[in-house]
């Protein structure tokens, strides 16, 4: 029984703070006390694992995985990228899950009442495992912008929600992917919960013409970085790593 190595500390000034007045829901959902910093224990450095038996072959194809009478309407895209850690090491066989609105900005969720229509052939979720080199790939429809009740005229940029596991429970991450060139990105209070422009840039997927399928689908590339594992060389493994 070997314990996985520790993780690099999370840079809490790079991530958004809990309380951001302009993102109104955070006002009553942010702790007032400081987080208690822990040296990670086995409970944090261990984490759940997933295998190919957990998912089906069409799970990463949002153009097909809810098709009932034909194809969904909208801009066909390939979304792909690599999951690495802060050391630049690929994260293989890790679960990546995505969810999004349809081309008109409508979510298939019983709580979404936006007047834009549901697409009968679009569900809006997908999942896949990264390959042995950390690469993942989805096929989907580019989501539309979406109005929300923050300020009276707030609109989310086109975005896809992304959930990643890594190998440790403390690497668990949920984020959002935005699209290159979208003028709504700079206006969004949720994007702007992130204080550093360089960090915001890390959430903007790049148009990737090299991966397009000519006459079929355009492509965007979105790489993901999870926390890196620390060497435990000096602590308890004098024989090395």
């Amino acid at each position: 029984m070997t314990q996985p190595p520790d993780l690099y500390q999370r840079d809490r000034e790079w991530h958004p703070p809990a309380y951001v007045q302009n993102y109104k829901t955070s006002v009553s959902r942010s702790p007032q006390n400081a987080l208690l910093s822990l040296e990670p224990t086995l409970s944090e450095v261990a984490g759940p694992t997933f295998g190919h038996s957990d998912i089906a072959s069409l799970d990463n194809d949002l153009i097909r995985n809810y098709a009932k009478t034909g194809d969904p309407i909208g801009e066909r895209i390939i979304l792909h990228g690599r999951v690495q850690d802060e050391n630049g090491k690929p994260v293989p066989n890790t679960l990546v899950e995505i969810w999004q609105a349809n081309a008109g900005g409508r979510y298939r969720h019983k709580k979404d009442t936006y007047l834009a229509a549901i697409d009968p052939n679009f569900g809006g979720c997908g999942r896949t495992l990264t390959d042995e080199n950390g690469f993942y790939r989805f096929r989907t429809i580019k989501p539309g912008a979406y109005p929300w009740r923050n300020w009276i005229n707030s609109w989310r940029p086109a975005h896809i929600h992304v959930s990643v596991f890594g190998s440790s429970f403390a690497q668990r991450l949920i984020t959002q992917l935005y699209f290159e060139g979208d003028p709504l990105i700079a206006k969004c209070p949720i994007v702007n919960t992130i204080p550093d422009q360089r960090a915001i840039k890390q959430l903007v997927a790049a148009l990737d013409l090299n991966t397009t399928v000519p006459l079929d689908s355009i492509a965007y590339k979105f790489d993901i970085v999870l926390r890196g594992h620390r060497s435990t060389y000096f602590e308890n493994r004098p024989e090395g790593n």
Partner: peptide
């Protein structure tokens, strides 16, 4: 070192994906 991808809220429709 690379920087960790910054977190964003899971939003109200997290159930669609998870």
């Amino acid at each position: 070192y690379l920087k960790e991808t910054p977190s964003q809220t899971a939003g109200p429709y997290v159930h669609i994906g998870l």
